[in-house]
Simulated scan of single mutants.
Amino acid sequence: MPPIVIVTDSASDIDQSLQQTLGIEVVPLKVRFGEEEYLDGVTLRADQFYEKLRQSPVLPMTSQPSTMDFAAKYKEIIARRGPDVQIIVLTLSAALSGTHQSAVIAKSMLEEAADITVIDSKKASFVYGLIVVEAARAALAGQSKQQVLDLINRYIESIQVYFIIDTLEFLQKGGRIGKASAFLGSLLNIKPILYLDESGVVTPYEKVRGSKKAVSRMIERLKEYAGTSPVKAAIIHAQSPEEAEALRERVQTEMNVVEAFQAEVGPVVGTHTGPGVLGCAVVKV
């Protein structure tokens, strides 16, 4: 069976040790503070990013990988794994970034050289990072390309994610606020619960007073989806490790969790959410 290689972009926020263990190939996005440009996860780690965010007089900006960045990655994989390699690319939501388009155009440049499939995750951060990890595991376990694609599509369609943020300021200024603009001007201590809709757009779910109530409502909604089914969960946070660990403990106690991940929101997604994000993604297995 031809080898399968899973490719993603750095906004998936997959820990480098997982990338290396599972053979996941990552194309970095770029983060810019004024005239200073960094490669997400390569020359700028999450902790360094949030420190710069606190100190910088200017808000950061992000940019997608170029078509040539993806083409170079595809060529590198083909050279290393041979012309029969099968490449599956899972990208950040096309509704949030042009990354998906870059990956697709790069594929069109190399269609005769390799078997490449590009998929829009319609998700962000480790929400699709979890899907990438599961796809890489399936490929390593010897599943066929079609089996891996079926798994990816099933997870994209069924994974549920809810998150709360400290402020809508970063989403608004970065132009990624989507339908959550309905929550602008909320009263003090009102915590907006958001989710990504079927097209990958940030969408309001509910406004709750106080963080504790918001977390409980988020868990309640995920439990309505999961019932007693076994699930995999991903706790996602930005500079909130204690809150993330507490959320993880609750999710594992209150739901039938067979595996739980914990990931920090990296520089690309963090540019548009700011610190203080706390969320949970759950998918039936």
Rank of each mutant, 00 (worst) to 15 (best):
V27F: 04
I14D: 00
V282E: 06
M218S: 10
L110F: 08
Y50I: 04
P192T: 01
V265G: 00
E51K: 13
L149R: 10
G98M: 01
G274R: 05
V58G: 14
E76K: 14
L247K: 12
P275A: 09
E245S: 12
K212D: 11
T67I: 13
K207D: 13
T167G: 10
E169V: 04
A263S: 11
M61G: 15
S144Y: 03
V27C: 12
S186A: 12
P65E: 02
M68I: 06
L96Q: 11
G200S: 10
T8W: 15
E37F: 02
Y205H: 12
S66W: 01
E206D: 08
K52E: 05
A234M: 13
D120L: 03
H100I: 11
A136R: 07
P83G: 00
S158P: 04
K179Y: 09
V161F: 08
E76N: 13
V127L: 14
D9Q: 04
I159C: 08
E37G: 01
K52Y: 00
H272W: 09
A94C: 08
E36M: 06
S158T: 15
K75S: 13
R54A: 14
L222Q: 08
A71C: 07
T273V: 08
G276V: 01
I119R: 14
R209C: 00
Y50M: 03
R81N: 00
I131L: 11
F70V: 14
A141M: 00
A113R: 09
T273G: 06
E169C: 03
G266D: 11
V265H: 02
V127R: 00
S108D: 15
A113H: 11
V215T: 10
P275S: 10
Q101A: 12
G34H: 09
A238T: 13
Q172H: 12
E111W: 13
G41P: 04
E37V: 15
K179T: 04
P267K: 02
Q172W: 13
R250I: 08
T253R: 01
D69Y: 03
I236W: 10
V85T: 07
T228D: 12
T271N: 05
R217W: 12
G279Y: 03
K212I: 00
T271G: 05
E206L: 14
Y155F: 15
V161R: 02
L92N: 04
N189G: 08
E169G: 03
S211W: 01
Y162M: 12
A71P: 06
